[in-house]
Design a protein around this nucleic acid. Structure first.
Lengths: 228, 228
DNA sequence: CCCTAGCATCAGAGCCCTCTGAAACCCGGG
DNA sequence: CCCGGGTTTCAGAGGGCTCTGATGCTAGGG
């Protein structure tokens, strides 16, 4: 999952970045509205956190501009104080949720997760495919009830595939969503992670949850249906 | 399906090419308007992606020129930033759709697919001919509800035939749309693929979905009508 | 009835994509 | 400073896909 943080207070920004990264997001940050505008136009994020009170170009302008360009990235606005009007303005500008500015990181994370889930069309935080369960809020995978220990990238790869279960996802799309924009394309990291996932998720080669579609990419699918 | 990408930013161009190829298109690319003009005149594409902001001959000129020569290839224009006027200009020049330039690759792909479908006169991404179903968005063929596993070229061949169901397609036209322009013509690859398709689609020789029209080419047809 | 052009079929060669295991690297913690 | 888990690279193996060329078949014209 790729997140963009737009916040002029550099301390808070760094702190958020760190928190989100610990949480498994790939984070890019910006301290001013002008740059944020550009970034949102140029790159694709799964979630954006935007402070309303930015110098120069305000957060509202940033969101409005994105929206007017058809950008559908879920946006959570941070409002200074518990300012009632800012919240409304933010939502009207096209934000999806808001949080008043002294906040608990936990709550921010919970809301971000909810937004990401909603954007991918899944209401419930838990996706179950047969014996495989994905809990996006807990960032946990279970196989027949047993937790499977995955590393950060293993998890992200699987999460993206599961959120798009049934669809064939090209390797280009996967890397684009897992890594920063400047990632070296000709590498086979992905294949390595796919291999690890297959090993961990399906030790006896019976489920075959991840199918290779030669020349196109990978597809997550299991017989039983998505119960989200 | 054959696509032409006209874009002067070589990074973006390469990236698009890669993405489209992974999606199963045969891609040719050009970095300038003059060459694009020529290519569009000389060859037949199923879809063209044209950046408006080209040096020398602009994207608008390219499109206008194609149109004045009666070329009906579906064109999607890329406009820099959310530039309202460029969009209108593009459409007036004869483009069929537009996308503001920082865009989501997935959205571009979705739109291209829609254009290609529309151009072939089909509204829905799923074409059904009796027990045979073609889902162009998922790139999947089903026979009586069962997925038929096709390789990349098998699929492309069948897709082109099905999108032109009822029409007799010459072998020249088929190779032209499936392969790059410099493809060696005297080969019997096509016949080999037709053979494999007939095997896979019609194991008991009862449907006969692909007819040979001696001296002319092949035709996809089934008794029941197109339900798209 | 034969002859020829066009098409069908087949098996194998070659290539490209993917997989795999091991080793190197990197970074944070002890 | 070393250690260890995580990530990435590398190189070779493996296997599937595509293409070729030979050969057999069929339709249609003379």
């Amino acid at each position: 999952m790729k997140a963009l943080i737009v916040e002029d207070d550099s301390d808070l920004r760094r702190q958020l970045k760190q928190q989100l990264e610990q949480r498994g997001y790939t984070v890019e940050e910006s301290g001013n509205g002008r740059e944020a505008l550009y970034l949102g136009q140029e790159y694709e994020y799964d979630i954006a956190v935007v402070d309303i009170g930015l110098p120069e170009v305000s957060g509202l302008d940033v969101i409005r501009s994105w929206r007017s360009q058809g950008k559908v990235v879920p946006v959570l606005v941070l409002t200074a104080r518990g300012d009632w009007q800012d919240k409304v303005a933010g939502l009207e500008a096209g934000a999806d949720d808001y949080l008043a500015k002294p906040f608990h990181t936990e709550e921010l994370l919970a809301r971000l997760n909810a937004l990401v889930r909603r954007a991918s069309g899944h209401a419930s935080p838990v996706l179950a495919f047969g014996p495989l369960e994905l809990d996006t809020s807990a960032r946990v995978i279970k196989l027949s009830g047993e937790e499977v220990r995955l590393t950060s990238y293993e998890y992200r790869t699987l999460e993206y595939l599961m959120l798009n279960a049934g669809k064939t996802i090209s390797k280009a799309e996967l890397t684009e969503h897992l890594y920063h924009q400047d990632y070296d394309r000709d590498s086979n990291v992905l294949e390595v992670f796919i291999r690890r996932l297959r090993q961990k998720l399906d030790p006896d080669q019976s489920l075959k949850p991840i199918t290779t579609v030669r020349g196109l990419g990978y597809r997550f699918s299991l017989d039983s249906a998505d119960q989200a």
